[in-house]
Amino acid sequence: MLRLYVAGAAPNSLRAVTNARAICEGQSAPGFELEIVDVLKHPRRALADGVLVTPTLLRVSPLPTLKIVGSLSDKDQVLLMLVAK
């Protein structure tokens, strides 16, 4: 389960959404469900998750939780981190 925090349609956020979708839909990462949360509409949720900047990708499960900050442009590197235990 992944949650991507974005700030409306800001450029890096849009890029992160595109990259995150590509990662989830790719061959190597089956089973990841992606939720996109706009912090401009739901700031409380970001704070509850300890997210202070956008874009931030949060791995909710499996534990331990994991945060990746940025536009996720290096998809291979992101994937490596997401599948790590």
């Binding site: 700030a7 956008t54 990746i68 900050v69 940025g70 536009s71 442009s73």
Partner: peptide, 28 residues
Amino acid sequence: AEAEATIAALLSGQIDAVFDAVSETPVL
């Protein structure tokens, strides 16, 4: 590692918004 990645992202201009600590709202 997360903190370092966050700093790297900040430095490379990949951040759109940060939370203002006082008002607890995101600032673009």
